[in-house]
Computed example of a mutant assay.
Amino acid sequence: RLPVRGVEEAAPRQPFGVAAVLAVALTRVELRAGDPRAAVQALPDWTAPDAESWPLPVRLAAGLLDAVLAERGGDDRRAGRILEGVLDLAEPDGYRRVFTRAEPGVRDLLAAHLDSGTAHWPTVSDLVRGADERRADEPTDRPGTTERALDEPLTERELTILRYLQSILSNVEIASELSLSVNTVKTHVRNIYRKLDATRRREAVRRARELRLI
């Protein structure tokens, strides 16, 4: 990785943290140029003790790039651990802009993080939903690419339970959260599977995202 301290020594008159900003920018350039190895080398160490003095958006951006690079390198578990660390850092201040303005593919990274489990489920769910809404608002030159509507729409209660299916909560825990009986939740889940033409939870969630229901 790029030695941020060395960059600062080479440009001592720069305000503190500017070297990290430049390193993050260089990482983005290398990533968009299709050179992940160079991007990894350019990425500043956002977990180092001196990184605590960086501006929060810079540190979060570096962490998010770290997660993206881990995922593209095929290490999904490490990507998930890094992403959870970034969310831990962002949560106290409610900082979300770095996620909404992130690299292409971050939405899918966040969606996968919902499936694997996170302590920040409401935040990640909102970020994924927001990304889908922005995508829906984007103009397209390819007519007819919108997913067909369901033959039988989901009810409001089914949509609520569907959102919980993104989490790691069991049916028993979902029932407790919604003050419903477990049998009622199971009935709704069966209806969701039938309407989405799915046979298991992950498949139902994937199908719902394709239809932009969640």
Rank of each mutant, 00 (worst) to 15 (best):
P3H: 02
P3R: 06
V4A: 08
V4Q: 10
R5S: 11
E8R: 13
E8V: 08
E9L: 15
A11K: 07
P12T: 05
R13G: 11
P15F: 08
A19E: 10
A20I: 04
A20V: 07
V24P: 04
L31K: 04
L31S: 10
G34T: 06
P36K: 07
A38Y: 01
A39F: 11
V40I: 12
L43N: 02
P44C: 11
W46T: 03
A48Q: 08
A48N: 05
A51S: 15
E52R: 14
E52Q: 13
S53T: 12
P57E: 08
V58F: 03
A61I: 04
A61Y: 02
G63T: 06
A67P: 03
A67F: 00
V68Y: 00
E71H: 04
G73R: 06
G74R: 03
D75C: 02
D76G: 07
R77C: 01
A79G: 01
A79C: 02
I82M: 03
L83F: 03
G85P: 07
A90D: 09
Y95Q: 12
Y95W: 13
Y95N: 00
R96D: 11
R96H: 06
R96A: 10
T100F: 04
E103F: 05
G105Y: 03
V106I: 14
V106T: 15
D108H: 04
L110M: 06
A112S: 09
T118P: 03
H120F: 06
V124E: 02
S125F: 09
R129A: 14
E133K: 12
A136F: 08
A136K: 09
P139M: 05
D141F: 10
G144H: 05
T146Y: 01
R148G: 13
R148A: 15
D151F: 11
L154T: 11
I161K: 01
I161H: 05
Y164P: 01
L165M: 15
L165C: 06
Q166G: 10
I168C: 02
E173I: 01
E173R: 13
E173P: 01
A175L: 06
L178I: 05
S181C: 01
V185I: 15
K186P: 00
T187K: 14
H188Q: 14
V189W: 08
V189C: 05
N191Y: 09
I192A: 10
R194L: 12
L196C: 07
R200H: 15
R200P: 00
R200S: 09
A204W: 07
E210W: 00
R212P: 00
L213R: 06
I214K: 00
I214E: 04
